[in-house]
């Protein structure tokens, strides 16, 4: 035994405390890691936001149904729904659809829409050129507002996918 046990014990304790500290940080590091992982793999229905112009090629031979779902969090006193429940598109073609939101209260309210795409493997292939979900939306008292979404599906969409569901949930942006 080269050193007295007390200094060895202190060294072991400090090393283990460092591990504990690193793991505390790792718990927080899981937050960005999770986002990166979801972005790379397209898991969890995350949609890439701002995108360039549509791809040149359009696949006329294939039709894909895109369904729209509109939800609102119960704390948000709005009416929110798509004008059309579903459209049929050719991959590569750009399409614009409209959602309608109406503020049912006598005060101005700001909302934020969180998108989700199902199935998960389609989420990387649905590109939005314009979307009300890019920014917060403020509705004046009793205001009714039409909100467009312009999107296209890229032709790399897996052949097994014939229906894509695009869902939005509106939350009160002030929590």
């Amino acid at each position: 035994m080269a050193q007295p046990p007390s200094s060895r014990n202190a060294r072991t304790a400090i090393r283990l405390l460092v591990i504990a500290g690193v793991m505390f940080g790792f718990g927080f590091a899981l937050v960005p890691l999770y986002d990166v992982f979801c972005d790379i793999t397209g898991l969890n229905g995350r949609v890439e936001l701002a995108q360039a112009a549509p791809a040149a090629s359009m696949d006329d031979s294939r039709e894909v149904t895109v369904e729209f779902v509109a939800n609102r969090n119960q704390s948000l006193p709005w009416r929110f729904e798509p004008v059309q429940d579903r459209v049929t598109v050719h991959p590569g073609a750009t399409r614009t659809v409209v959602f309608v939101a109406e503020n049912l209260q006598d005060v101005a309210i700001t909302g934020r829409a969180v998108p989700s795409v199902t199935p998960g493997e389609a989420s990387r292939h649905l590109h939005k050129v314009e979307c009300f979900c890019f920014t917060e939306q403020e509705l004046a008292p009793r205001e009714r507002k039409e909100m467009p979404v312009t999107f296209y599906l890229d032709p790399d969409l897996p052949a097994s996918v014939d229906t894509v569901t695009l869902a939005y949930t509106f939350f009160d942006a002030n929590g």
Partner: peptide
């Protein structure tokens, strides 16, 4: 030593979500 700190981190995030306006687990805030 490896996982109790991760729990401490998780409940700390709950605490800041509730009282300090963070949005680790709050969909409305991303």
């Amino acid at each position: 030593v490896a996982v109790m700190p991760v729990l401490a981190g998780a409940v700390t995030m709950l605490l800041t979500d509730r009282y300090f306006g963070t949005s680790f687990f709050n969909a409305a805030g991303g």
